[in-house]
């Protein structure tokens, strides 16, 4: 069912999906703008959490210039990037992931599947959480401020490395979310899984060098925490290698393809709301 969209030339198809995305999200934004006070107070709350995190890590540097090779400004760059990624997760992934159990339970999924649009696209991009939309901007603001404080120029190559690794990071988070969403089709409670994803992402608040031994290995290789925050920031600080960029790009591509396969496989297993 997943591949039953009308065959259009590639460019036209992309434009069609972008248009759909615009329709979906502007509908959500319009509905949410009914609650302007909520939006404002949540935006202030986001700013508060950012300042909270930035000041909080300052305590570590009372006892030394660096912690496991990271200075205060460098750690703030990580914090900013974490805030941006986590904000995107809350804005784009969480509202859709949170609805998946309901889709299956209420039979809404059957309805989604009959639409002439790719089903993975529908279940992962239909909704948008506007309260965290400012988080990526705030996070990037903190990154810029921290980089200026650090006082070393960021070269164009570093910037390119960050963009590539950053795209890889977002792809991996998205792929993970789709994989978790697929699990809902095998009848597992979706809410608990969202908590799980949140817990994993939360560990990305600090660079993996802060952890040690088994935990560091786990966060680097098994869970995508290093890919999510540490690697992109290392690129920005001029500490990455071409090899790592290639590896992460391949991993991200594999994750996207894998997630799509898992989704299709789960759909084949799915028998409709009545079954």
């Amino acid at each position: 069912m997943a591949g039953r969209s009308p065959s259009l030339p590639g460019g036209q198809r992309l434009r069609r999906y972008l248009r759909l995305l615009r329709i979906f999200w502007s509908a959500t934004v319009q509905a949410e703008l009914e609650y302007r006070l909520n939006f404002l107070s949540n935006a202030l709350l986001s700013l508060f959490w950012l300042v909270w995190a930035a000041l909080g890590v300052g305590v570590y540097f009372r006892f030394g210039e660096t912690v496991n090779g990271w200075s205060y400004p460098e750690l703030l760059v990580v914090m900013g990037w974490f805030f941006a990624v986590n904000g995107l997760r809350q804005a784009v992934i969480q509202p859709n992931l949170g609805r998946m159990t309901e889709y299956v339970r209420m039979g809404t999924l059957d309805f989604v599947l009959t639409k002439p649009v790719n089903s993975q696209f529908m279940v992962s991009f239909r909704h948008l959480g506007i309260y965290n939309l400012l988080d990526p901007l705030l996070g990037i603001g903190l990154m810029v401020a921290a980089l200026i404080w650090r006082g070393e120029m960021v070269s164009v190559i570093d910037l390119v490395g960050w963009v590539v690794l950053g795209a890889g990071a977002l792809s991996v988070v998205y792929a993970l979310a789709v994989a978790i969403q697929s699990l809902a089709l095998w009848a597992i409670g979706g809410e608990a899984l969202d908590d799980l994803l949140q817990g994993v992402v939360e560990a990305g608040r600090f660079p993996v060098q802060m952890y040690r031994g088994f935990v560091r290995a786990l966060l680097t290789f098994a869970l995508p925490v290093a890919v999510m925050t540490t690697f992109p920031v290392e690129a920005l600080l001029g500490r990455t290698t071409l090899k790592l960029v290639v590896v992460v790009t391949l991993v991200a591509a594999a994750a996207l393809v894998g997630a799509s396969l898992v989704w299709r496989l789960s759909l084949r297993h799915y028998r409709g709301a009545s079954a």
Partner: peptide, 25 residues
């Protein structure tokens, strides 16, 4: 939910970082 996650994962993240601080300083 945020507070719940923070309260279950956070102390151990904090511990990890403080142990690094202890080692460096």
């Amino acid at each position: 939910i945020l507070i719940w996650v923070l309260s279950s994962v956070f102390p151990l993240l904090m511990l990890a970082v403080w142990l690094s601080v202890e080692q460096t300083s």
